[in-house]
Structure formats: structure tokens, C-alpha cells
């Protein structure tokens, strides 16, 4: 009985985290399309519900009632597994995101490494989908995307090292608390910019959406998918984007810390601040999608390996020597 109650408590906590995440993913899709439309002087989805807020719900309903087509020449098990893997990986990463000093599902010692590991596993959903479709456009899209994600992970890893040098811990709550006097976006501003661009590439957002470049590859690895499986890819992708925004907010924008640390503002719970910061970053993501044209593939690779990697490595040396010289290294 004791075990049962523990299990029930955990399940309750997980549901309390995942249901809001899924709902906000649906809302964020609406926001994305709306911002995109406003930049282009259109209206965007504004028919279903107030301001079109229920558009994503309508889309989801449509996807559920569509037929799931599995190509006869595909590798069926892996074909079905791919969207499941994508969505699961996008959701399990939320376990370590701290919404306040105590509101975190799993307060583990290596939180940032866990986030990094899960986001690096995300490439498998895409490779599996592309390969199992047994069709040339999905396969080309999957190969492009795998190379792209592996390349940009390297620079994200080096950027994380920069932040960790200033914190001295891999725990996400410690990273947030280390920013009480100053958010890391101020001393590490160039790293924040590179993190933002790498996050765009890591989540296959425009201008780096080459895996699904519709002009050349139909829809990349999603070409053969339909119905609920397509919707799961789509949900997983947006959950990943939100996760990257959350990572940026925690690493550079002070996580759940209030930007105004005096009386009336300290009453606002940390979760609200974190959500506000995530939304701010997502708004930037949506703006970039609307205003920047797509990169060419060789330019994308050049940017990742020849510009971002050396620059962030040099910045690691700079940060480390600054901290060492002024005796600011966080040694306990």
C-alpha cells in the first residue's frame, strides 16, 4: 500500500506537469501562426473561438479523425515508433525544469546534463521516421537533420560549459540561484545570442528548417506521415521548442527569479516569471521565423562548425581565465 500511494502521488505530479505543457504547446502553435501572420500583414487563425484561440484544438480533432496511412513498403515497427519517440523525449525533459525553488518534479544533481542528453536523443525520432518511410525525400531530410542537430549540439554543449563555469554545479536550481545578483545574459551576452541561434537550428526552426524545406524535400521526414502520427511529430517539435526556450530562460534569464526583486513583485510566484520568460523567448523564435529567409545547407554547416564552435571555445577560455584571475571561481 505504501508503494501504491507513492506511485499515485508521482503520477499525480507528472499529470499536473504534462497536461499544462501539452495545452501550452497547443496554444503556442496558435501564437506562432498569429505572430507569423501579423508580420506579413495577415490575420492568421482568427475564426475558431475568441481570437482563434481554439484553432489548435480544431486541428487536433481533425488529425484524430483522419486515417493513419502506413506505406506498404515501410518498416512498420520503426515507422510507428518514430513519432512516439519524438513526443516522449520532448515530454520527459520537462521533469527537471524548476518552476520555483521547490516546484520541480526531479531535482537531480546533473539536471543540465539530463536536458542536454534528452535533447541530443531527439535526433532519433527524425532518423527513424526518415529511414522507415523508405522513400527518398524523407531519407534526405532525415540525413540533413541528423547532421544539423549533431553539429549544433556541439556549440550548445560549449555554451553550457560557459554557464557552468560561473555556477559550479550541474543542478538547474543552483544555476538559477547563482543568477540572483546578475542574470548571465549580461556577462555572457554573446553566448546568449549564439545559444538562441543554435536553439533555432537544434529544433529545426526557420531559418534552419532544411530538414523539411518544402521547396526541395516536400516535408522532409514527415512526408509519409498522416493523421495522429503527424500530429505527434508536430506536438513533439513544438514541445522541444518550448523546452529550448525554457533552457534559455534558465541558463541566461534567471529562470524563476523575479526581475524586480522588491516587495509587490516578490508576491508573484516564480512559475509565472518562468512562463513569462519562456513566452518572451518564443516570441523571438516566432519573429525570426517570419523575417529571415532559409539558409543554404553548406552555409548552415559553415556557421555551426567554423563560426559558432571556435567563438564559443574562445569564450570558454576567456570566462575561465577571467574567473581564475579575479579569484571568482565557484569552489566549495
Amino acid at each position: 500500500m505504501e508503494y501504491l500511494s507513492i506511485v499515485f502521488e508521482e503520477v499525480y505530479k507528472i499529470l499536473f506537469l504534462l497536461v499544462p505543457v501539452l495545452v501550452s504547446v497547443a496554444m503556442i502553435v496558435w501564437l506562432d501562426r498569429r505572430v507569423w501572420a501579423f508580420v506579413q500583414k495577415r490575420q492568421g487563425p482568427n475564426v475558431v473561438g475568441p481570437f482563434g484561440l481554439l484553432q489548435s484544438l480544431a486541428d487536433a480533432l481533425k488529425y484524430i479523425f483522419k486515417e493513419m496511412i502506413i506505406p506498404s513498403s515501410s518498416n512498420k515497427v520503426i515507422f510507428i515508433l518514430a513519432p512516439i519517440v519524438t513526443m516522449t523525449l520532448a515530454l520527459i525533459a520537462w521533469a527537471v525544469i524548476p518552476f520555483s525553488a521547490t516546484q520541480v518534479l526531479a531535482d537531480i544533481n546533473v539536471g543540465i546534463l539530463y536536458l542536454f542528453a534528452v535533447s541530443s536523443l531527439g535526433v532519433y525520432g527524425i532518423i527513424m521516421g526518415g529511414w522507415a518511410s523508405n522513400s527518398k525525400y524523407p531519407f534526405l531530410g532525415a540525413i540533413r537533420s541528423a547532421a544539423q542537430m549533431v553539429s549544433y549540439e556541439v556549440s550548445i554543449g560549449v555554451i553550457i560549459i560557459n554557464v557552468l563555469l560561473c555556477v559550479g554545479s550541474l543542478n538547474l536550481n543552483d544555476i538559477v540561484l547563482a543568477q540572483q545578483s546578475m542574470w548571465f545574459v549580461i556577462p555572457l551576452f554573446p553566448m546568449f545570442v549564439i545559444f538562441f541561434i543554435s536553439a533555432l537550428a537544434e529544433t529545426n526552426r526557420p531559418p534552419f528548417d532544411l530538414p523539411e524545406a518544402e521547396a526541395e524535400l516536400v516535408a522532409g521526414y514527415q512526408t509519409e506521415y498522416s493523421g495522429m502520427m503527424y500530429a505527434m511529430f508536430w506536438l513533439g517539435e513544438y514541445a522541444n521548442i518550448l523546452l529550448m526556450c525554457a533552457m534559455g530562460a534558465i541558463l541566461f534569464l534567471g529562470g524563476w527569479l523575479s526581475p524586480l526583486a522588491f516587495y509587490p513583485f516578490t508576491l508573484i510566484p516564480g512559475a509565472i516569471w518562468l512562463i513569462f520568460k519562456i513566452l518572451l523567448l518564443f516570441f523571438l523564435f516566432a519573429l525570426v521565423k517570419a523575417i529571415v529567409p532559409r539558409y543554404r545547407y553548406d552555409q548552415l554547416m559553415r556557421l555551426g562548425w567554423k563560426v559558432f564552435l571556435p567563438f564559443s571555445l574562445i569564450w570558454v577560455v576567456l570566462t575561465a581565465s577571467y574567473l581564475f584571475y579575479f579569484n571568482l571561481l565557484p569552489v566549495n
Binding site: L113, Y114, F116, A117, L121, E153
Partner: peptide
């Protein structure tokens, strides 16, 4: 975690 990142991720 390093096993996940290095072996599985790369």
C-alpha cells in the same frame, strides 16, 4: 549522462 550524450547522442 555522459554515456547517453557521447554514445547514444553522437
Amino acid at each position: 549522462m555522459i554515456m547517453l550524450i557521447v554514445y547514444v547522442g553522437a
